[in-house]
């Protein structure tokens, strides 16, 4: 590709190529604190290609390509190039990663112990992890929690936080340094999006795993409530939240059983971030 860069997030190394300079320049700025892959070897390649003949210049339109691709994915506008890169990297992890059990979840850490939060899009797991990351917790990731099948530890994947819609203003109130925010991408297929660079210490500790001690299923937009989630329900919901559970076979089964039988799980409904954080702090304090 004409423009390219490399970066490492947690244990995964990416080569990003683009037919346009703008997405790569934005990536270089936002991922400036991230390390380069060892020996310049990438696990995955993501390419932003023109969606058709002439579409590099005329109404530039991006097709996401790479080692793993969705053939029917709709092209995206070049002004949403950063989102295209994010989607491309997520796709490589979701379809290709086999070194850990991959759960679609956010995670934060305190004193070597990890809180894992999973839920459907809009549940607030990403925003809550980002907020906690500014309030004394180590941000480990807003998209994927990587479970080590041998040890049960959670490994970080602290990519840029993808803030959507109302979460953008919530995090602008939380983070004073404007340089940590990417450009506002309006009216993307996922709504308005701004990327946020995680705290520097979270990036510096991106290869440091933590022991999972609590699993939450947050749900935004409901009156404050919480209930314990049984191991059977947690197991079933986590198989649905994992993109590689089936591919890992027996190894994934044993890892997930170990996780749900050792980590207490709760469903937490909440109406705003402050309410959720108070509830999380109380639950955390009550842990043995």
């Amino acid at each position: 590709m004409k423009y390219q860069c490399m970066l490492r997030i947690g244990p995964a190394a990416f080569r990003i190529g683009s037919a346009w300079a703008e997405p790569i320049e934005a990536l270089r700025r936002l991922y400036a604190l991230y390390p380069q892959p060892q020996d310049a070897i990438a696990d995955y390649t993501v390419r932003l290609e023109p969606a058709g003949v002439g579409r590099r210049c005329w109404r530039p339109s991006v097709r996401i390509a790479g080692d793993h691709m969705l053939p029917d994915a709709a092209p995206m506008a070049l002004r949403h190039g950063l989102l295209a890169v994010e989607m491309g990297m997520n796709l490589q992890m979701a379809l290709g990663w086999r070194r850990h059990l991959l759960i679609h979840a956010s995670s934060v850490e305190k004193n070597g112990r990890a809180l894992v939060m999973t839920g459907e899009s809009g549940s607030g797991k990403s925003t809550l992890a980002a907020m906690l990351g500014e309030r004394g917790w180590r941000f480990m990731g807003d998209e994927f929690a990587l479970i080590d099948c041998a040890t049960g530890m959670v490994h970080p994947f602290p990519r840029l936080v993808s803030l959507k819609n109302r979460a953008i203003e919530a995090m602008r109130d939380e983070v004073a340094n404007a340089d940590r925010f990417g450009p506002l991408m309006e009216a993307t297929p996922k709504g308005d999006i701004v990327h946020l660079v995680p705290p520097e210490s979270a990036i510096a500790r991106m290869v440091e795993p933590a022991k999972p001690v609590m699993l939450l299923f947050p749900r935004y937009g409901f009156p404050l409530d919480q209930r314990p989630v049984g191991q059977g329900e947690a197991f079933m919901r986590l198989t649905q939240a994992s993109t590689n559970y089936v591919a890992l076979g027996e190894q994934g089964f044993q890892a997930l059983h170990r996780f749900v039988s050792g980590v207490p799980a709760l469903a937490v409904d909440y109406e705003d971030g402050e309410q959720a954080i108070s509830a999380i702090d109380a639950l955390w304090e009550a842990l043995p």
Binding site: G230, Q231, G232, F235, E250, F253, Q254, H257, V260, S261
Partner: peptide, 20 residues
Amino acid sequence: LIEHDLDGLTLLFHRPSGQT
């Protein structure tokens, strides 16, 4: 078959099919 107890439910992994 690999069998585990999960809060009174029985969790099974069927090795020949890879199904849970």
